[in-house]
Amino acid sequence: MIGVNRYKCGYCGACVSVCPIGAVELVETWVEIADDCTECGTCAGVCPIGAIEVLK
């Protein structure tokens, strides 16, 4: 699954824009990942601050 570290995240929304299936949502000050996420990790790749990880 995708882990988002809320203590690190700067809620910029870069991750949302690259998700191929639109499974990432920036609510206000946190990011939510929908159940249909395929764990491709594209969101984790572009994060400027390293707040997203694909957890094995």
Partner: peptide, 26 residues
């Protein structure tokens, strides 16, 4: 609704960016 726009996607316009099509910054 900005870089994280969903409005277009919901209406059938594909706004997804490839990683090479976004500058990520701090």
């Amino acid at each position: 609704d900005g870089v994280e726009s969903k409005i277009g996607r919901w209406a059938g316009i594909d706004t997804t960016l490839k990683p090479s099509e976004i500058e990520t910054g701090a």
